[in-house]
Write a protein that binds this DNA or RNA. Structure first.
Length: 548
RNA sequence: GACCCUAUCAUCUAAUGGUUAGGAUAUGGCCCUCUCAAGGCCAGUAUAUGGGUUCAAAUCCCGUUAGGGUCACCA
């Protein structure tokens, strides 16, 4: 390749390889330290699968004295969205996942292996690409996409592997004269790697999660530099992860079949490849009972923001994902109910290597309830307020103006240990839970107190109003309900009622139900005694009188 | 079509050649002197399929089937 061609291919001033390598010295980290990363495309959206992957990578790095960094893979200019980096960082920050290096919310960067945004590294990729062209490891390709489509069709018709390789790589062996001619004619070009792989050779891969695999070697002359001068994922991956000192690449299984290509490229560069860990993809059951990838278009929960918007406790989301990574998480949590979730020692040797878990809201909600049950009323209050301020401002105002009452409500049957109430999964549930405290219920359907009839309810209310006293303790409170029950022909005792149901109109449970409906508008509620205490004598009597 | 990954209760999974195949979620039942939630107790439900190897297979090997992934100037 003549210098003239190289200059036409890469007209811009580029740093030398030596200069570049000098700027990226090997990291000084303790023995065994892991450097890993999250490398999202800035599309304005963080997919839950990406988040899952990033979380796994972060755990791997931070549990191994290492570094976790964020790299913005914005080489697809068409998909790039303004403000997308902030979206990613906020999503991570919401869960306390903090990259040690990389782009920051304010647009700056931290870390000394940057820039961490690929579009700002154009010269670096080009310098390496130029070096490859110089050495004959890459070449310019002038084929149009139409040429390539046509070629693929021909290949498919003949039952051949489609792709740009071997004798189908038309531009692979252009002479210098032909290249020069094309360049002088201003024909658009891209740079392709000259693969030295043979499809008939098997190469063995040692994946951290999948174990030992064997695949055919890569023979495709894949594109390394696109028409716009930016690199493709593959090329950027090897250049960046080499320079940035990545020791472990954690990524989804969809990359598994590119590993032979990546290893080949590392070899052509003369670089040590990182260790790879390919995890199974999160899946979802569709309407037809079939598994599929969680889809951005079809599933709102594909966006990690969904969980913040809907008020899922951060820890619950993390716990759910950790549970998918290590099934032993549940045992650990059981044994350590009060330890922060980030203290869970994720075991990489035990990361489940299955077909890919179905994202299960039922299970997530169960974890949510446990997480919320472990919190104090104050914590639930402030988390709920926090959420409401962002997503339900009206509700937030109510929470603030009734903070003492709300905390008291949240404290009903909340205790340390496993006996805590578990009816809240997420902050969004709190509003419904609190509804009857803010306003007296309006009972429109008299059938709610069946088997009682309205006259019974009136009588019960009248009798009970005479007895109710805010200062009663719980036993006294219940004794009074029993008293009203007896006086009105209801069994004061469940056992009596069960023994001779025909002797009574009903039981003390029915009496309590009448009171419960009058006070809360519902047939089910937390401990009625505590609810009445919180509402206070005046409000209780007012609500009871509404039926009289 | 080629290549690759995966296959245990409904779901997430444990059991790395010897277990009555374990747990969690979900479901059903019972108990808990007011409902619900929680909790306790109990129950049912699984090694895709066909061949091997072995004294012994969920586990190792091969085939079949099924699901997933990849085969872009997207990542």
């Amino acid at each position: 390749m003549t210098p003239e061609i190289l200059d036409l291919l890469f007209p811009n001033e580029l740093p030398t390889i030596k200069e570049i390598e000098k700027k990226y010295p090997p990291r000084k980290l303790p023995e065994g330290a892991v450097v890993s990363r999250l490398a999202p495309s800035p599309t304005g959206y963080l997919h839950i699968g990406n988040f899952y992957q990033g979380f796994m990578a972060e755990r791997l790095a931070h549990q191994n004295k290492g570094v976790f960094f964020l790299r913005v893979e914005d080489t697809d200019q068409a998909r790039k969205v303004e403000g997308a980096v902030e979206v990613v960082l906020r999503a991570l920050g919401h869960y306390g996942i903090m990259p040690d290096e990389g782009a920051q919310i304010d647009g700056s960067e931290c870390g000394s292996y940057g820039p961490y945004t690929q579009s700002l590294r154009k010269e670096i990729y080009q310098a390496y690409a130029k070096e490859w062209v110089k050495k004959g490891l890459a070449y310019p390709c002038f084929c149009s996409s139409e040429d390539i489509d046509l070629m693929r069709k021909v290949q498919e018709k003949q039952g051949l592997r489609p792709g740009y390789y071997g004798r189908y790589a038309k531009c692979r062996d252009l002479s210098d004269e032909q290249i020069l001619e094309n360049l002088k004619a201003k024909k658009p070009f891209i740079i392709r790697m000259r693969s030295n792989g043979d499809y008939n050779n098997r190469i063995v891969i040692e994946d951290l999660l999948k174990g030992k695999l064997s695949m055919p070697d890569n023979e495709m002359d894949i594109v390394i530099i696109k028409k716009d001068g930016l690199p493709t994922y593959h090329f950027a991956h090897i250049v960046d992860d080499h320079l940035m000192g990545t020791t472990n690449v954690v990524r989804g299984e969809e990359w598994l079949s590119s590993v032979p290509l990546h290893l080949q490229m590392f070899k052509m560069m003369g670089w040590q490849p990182p260790k790879y860990a390919h995890h199974a993809l999160l899946q979802k059951m569709d309407e037809n009972g079939k598994r599929r990838k969680i889809s951005k278009r079809l599933d709102p929960e594909a966006n990690i923001e969904y969980f913040a918007q809907n008020g899922y406790p951060q820890d619950a989301v993390l716990e759910y994902l950790l549970n998918l990574m290590n099934a032993s998480f549940e045992d650990w949590r059981k044994a350590n109910p009060t330890i922060p979730v980030m203290d869970f020692p994720l075991n990489f040797k035990k990361i489940s290597n299955t077909a890919g878990a179905l994202f299960d809201f039922v299970k997530l909600h169960s974890i949510c309830r446990d997480v919320v049950a472990r919190m104090t009323a104050d914590e639930v209050y402030s988390e709920t307020l926090n959420w409401a301020k962002q997503f339900k401002p009206e509700f937030a105002k109510k929470l603030e103006s009734h903070s003492e009452m709300v905390k008291a409500v949240l404290n009903i049957e909340r205790g340390i240990g496993p006996k805590s109430r578990k009816d809240l999964s997420k902050w969004a549930d709190v509003e419904n839970e609190l509804s009857y405290y803010f306003e007296a219920p309006v009972i429109t359907d008299a059938s709610v107190w069946a088997p009682l009839i309205e006259s019974d309810v009136k009588k019960i209310a009248v009798d009970y109003i005479k007895l109710y006293n805010d200062d009663d303790d719980k036993n006294m409170w219940f004794d009074k309900i029993k008293q009203v029950a007896s006086e009105n022909g209801f069994a004061a005792n469940m056992k009596d009622y069960k023994a001779n149901p025909s002797d009574y109109k009903g039981s003390v449970a029915d009496v309590a139900k009448a009171l419960r409906v009058l006070i809360t508008g519902r047939t089910q509620s937390p401990d009625l005694y505590q609810i009445m205490k919180i509402l206070g004598q005046k409000e209780v009597l007012k609500r009871l009188s509404s039926v009289v």
